[in-house]
Design a protein around this nucleic acid. Sequence first.
RNA 1: GGGCGAUUAGCUCAGUUGGUAGAGCAGCGCUUUUACACAGCGAAGGUCAGAGGUUCGAAUCCUCUAUUGCCCACCA
Length: 713
Amino acid sequence: MKQVPEQLTKPFDAASVEAPLYEMWEKSGYFNPDNLPGERKEAYTIVLPPPNVTGTLHTGHAIMLGIQDTLMRYKRMQGYKALWLPGTDHAAIATQSVVEKKIYKEEGKSRHDIGREEMLARINEFALESQKTILAQTRSMGASLDWSRLAFTLDDKRNLAVRTMFKKMYDDGLIYRGQRIVNWDPKGQTTISDDETVAEERKGTLYTFKYSKDFPIAISSTRPETKVGDVAVAVHPDDERYKEYVGKEYSMMFAGCPITIKVIADTAVEKDFGTGALGVTPAHSAIDWDIKERHGLPSRQVINEYAKMFGLENEELNGKKVTEAREYIVEWLRTEGLLTSEEEVTQNIPTAERTGGVIEPLPKLQWFVAVHKTFNHFGKETTLKNLMIQAVESKETSIIPDRFEKVYFHWIENLRDWCISRQIWYGHRIPVWYKGDEVHCGTEAPTGEGWVQDEDTLDTWFSSGMWTFSTLGWPEQTNDMKIYHPTSLVETGPDIIFFWVARMILFSTYALNEIPFKHVYLHGLVRDAQGRKMSKSLGNALDPRELSLKYGTDSLRMALLVGNGPGNDLKLSEDKIKAYKLFSNKIWNASRFVLDRTVDLESPAPLTTEDTALYDAWRVVQADITSDLENYRLHLGSEKIYDYFWKTFCDQIIETHKVRIAEDKDKASAQTLLMKLLREQLIVLHPFMPFISEELWKYVKDDADDLLMVTRW
RNA sequence: GGGCGAUUAGCUCAGUUGGUAGAGCAGCGCUUUUACACAGCGAAGGUCAGAGGUUCGAAUCCUCUAUUGCCCACCA
C-alpha cells in the first residue's frame, strides 16, 4: 500500500526546497539546449539583457527574469531547442564612475592619481565581485539560463567582435573621425551621446541686448557669456526688419574682447522668437555650428573642458566659470546701457545622466557612426537609418505593445550621427593607431615602430548592441550562429529602447543582413505601492532577494506577472506577494489531499460522463492559457491558472469528489480525475511557479517520467 | 512645443475580436473533531472620469473636455 510521503505532511517551506531544486536542474544539464531530451528541431532563443556590473539586482531585474524564465520554461516544455543565454554588461561610464567615487571617498584619490593601468585593475576587481553577486541572485530567482554560454560584454571574445565590427564599419566609411559639437560633460570629463543626456528644467533669464551702441540689431540670449565667441548674427531670409543689413560686417569690442559680426540670412532662425535675430556662437551651440558650416564662417572657442572661460583678450574673464562670466558680462551690458530687457524663462538644460553635470556643447575631434550615409549593403545602396526603419516597418521585428513602434520611428527620424568615443578608461579601446599623419584601423596593432593607439574607449552600447550575435560566437561562423540567430525575443524595459533595442537592430541588420530578434517585449517599470519609482535614495526599493526569502520565489514571480500587461507600470506591494504565498500553500495542501485520497488507486479508471465533462472544461482552460503564452499575454495566463486551481479545482471539484470518494460513488473515476487534473495543472503551473511545481512533481510523476521542467506541455 | 498612455468596487489592478461588469487586499456575517483558519460558505460594494456620436447592443469603436503620468525636443 502506497503512502503519502512524509515530506508532504509538513507545511510548504519555500526557502528549504528552492536551492536544492535549482541545483538539481543545473546538474541535469537541461538548461543547455544541446542536452535536452527528444528530437528538437526548432530553436527558441532569448539573450538575457545583461545586467550592469555596478551593483546588485533590483525588482526591475526580477520582473525581467520572471517573464523570460516563464517563456523559456514554456518553450522548453513544448519541445523547442530552448536557449536562454546569460551575461553581464561592463557598463563603461557607470562602472568607472562608481569605482572612482568609491576610491575618492576612501582614499581621496582621483583616477589620474592612480593611473590608467592600476585604475583598470581596480575596476576589474570590482566588476568581478559585482558579477558574482548578480549571478547568484539570478540563480535564486529560478532562472533556467544556460550557464555554459555565459558572456561578458568586455571579455576577449566580445572584444574581438567589437574590433571586427569597428574595422568593418570603418572600411565601409560608416565610422569616421570628425570635429563636431559634442555633449561634453565637464564633471565626468568625457563626451556622451545624445541619449545619455537628461533635460532638466531650470529657471533662467533671457537677456536682450546689443553687442555695441553702433550695432543695428539686438539679440536675445540666456548665455551672454558665450557671446564673446560670436561670429555672426543670423536672421530669417524673409524678415523685412533686417533685410538691409544682411551681408554687412561689423567689428567692435564686446566686454573687452574684439569681435567681428557678419549679418547672414538662414531659415533655421525663428522670426518670432526674441528679436528674431540669433547671435551665432559656432563653438558652443550645435545649431550655430551647423549655421557656420553652411555659411563658411570662422569659429572661436571661448569655454574649455572645465566649463571655464579661456584665451580671451580681457584677462578678467579668463579662468572664470561660465556662471561667473555671465554675471560679469550682464553687469558690463548694464553699465554700457546695452541691455534692453531681462525676462524670466524656464528652460530645459541638458545634463549628464550619470554625473548630473551641465552639458557644455564643445567642438571636439571624436569618432562617430554615420547613420545617414549611403553605402553598399549586400549589393544594395542604403543607410543605417533605413536598415533600422525597415526591420520594424516590414514587421520582421514587432514591438509589443505596438504603440512603441511609433516611439521607435520617431527616434530614428530625429537621429543624428552617434558619437561613440569616450574619454574614459574602462571599456573597449578604439582599434585605431596613429603614427604622425598615418592612421591605421585594424583588429590588431600594426607592425613597426612608433604607432600609438587611440586613448579613447567606446560607448558601452557599441558592445551591447552586438549582444544577440557576439554571444553566439560572431565573427566566427559558429554552429550556434546558424541555429540560434535571429533570436526569438528580446525582453526589456522601455527606457532602453533607443540605447539598446535600436542599436541591436542597427548592428545585426548591418553586419548579418538579418534582424536580431522577431519580437521585442517591453515590460513596465516597477513602482512601489504608492506608485513612486523605486530608488535607493527614497528608501522604498524592495529587495527581490529578501522578498524571495520571505514569501518564496514562486510567490514573488507570480506577483510580478499577474495583471502586469506589457508596457504598463506595475505597482508592487508586499500584500500582493503575500497573496501568492497563500496560493503556494493552497497548491501544497490540495496536492497532499489528492495524493492521500488516491493512494489506493492502482491504475487509472475510465471517467464517468460527468467527470469527462469536468476534464474537458479543464482542457479548454489549458488551451486558453497556452494561447496566452503563445501571444505573450503572461499577465492573463498566470491569472487563469491561479483562478482555475483555486476556484474550480479546489473549491468545486475536490469538494464534490471527496464526498464521492468517501461514499464510494464512482470512486475510481473520481480518483482518476483528481490525479489527472493535479498532474496536468502542475505542468501548466511550472513556467510560472517552477519550484513548488517541480517539488510536487516528485510525488505525482510516474517512474518513467523525467523532471517536470522537460515534461511535455 | 510635439507624441504616447491612464482614468473601472474603499485600495491595487484585470477585462484578448463590441454581447448581462471581474480578481486580490481591506471590511461584514456565519463555519473549527473539515486537505488547507495561510481555510470554506455567504452577503455587500461600481451611471466603467464627464459630454456627445456610431450600433439592435459600448468599459471596449469615434469626437471633444477634465484630471493625471510618461517619452521626445539645439526657440537662441
